[in-house]
């Protein structure tokens, strides 16, 4: 019998990537992805999140949703570090097309080229797309 505070070690560790391609608020995808990542973080896998296409808008600084009556979930991206989700990749081309730069983002990320991100996707064992 194990006590509830005794932690079980992780089983097989797999490389999981959550691919985020949707803007926040207009659809539920961004929030759903974030919730799944937070829940799955308990399973101690090798988790990364990629932000490309309109997904880069999820990380835009200065979101203020008071006017639209929806919850502003952008502060939650800053909690990911505490959940040991530290690999956040942002596609450089997606930022550039939108006139954004790394300074516009609300968490520290690694900006990389589409080519490099494609390589990284190839290395994953599980890819979850939102």
């Amino acid at each position: 019998m194990s006590e509830p505070w005794e932690e079980e070690g992780p089983g097989t560790v797999k490389k999981f990537m959550y691919v985020n391609r949707k803007a926040p608020y207009g659809t539920i995808y961004a929030l759903e992805s974030l919730e799944v990542v937070l829940i799955a973080a308990a399973f101690e896998q090798d988790v990364s999140m990629a932000f490309l296409d309109d997904g880069v808008y999820q990380l835009k600084k200065g979101q203020d949703t008071k006017g639209i009556g929806q919850k502003n979930f952008s502060p939650t991206y800053r909690a990911l570090e505490g959940y040991d989700v530290e690999k956040l990749y942002v596609e450089a081309e997606s930022l550039a097309e939108r006139g954004l730069s790394e300074d516009d983002l609300l968490v520290p990320v690694e900006v990389m080229s589409r080519e490099a991100l494609a390589e990284l996707m190839n290395e994953q064992e599980v890819i979850l797309s939102f």
Partner: peptide, 11 residues
């Protein structure tokens, strides 16, 4: 629409 702009972090 301004409220939708601001929600998305745009001014």
């Amino acid at each position: 629409l301004g409220p939708d702009l601001n929600a998305r972090g745009m001014t």
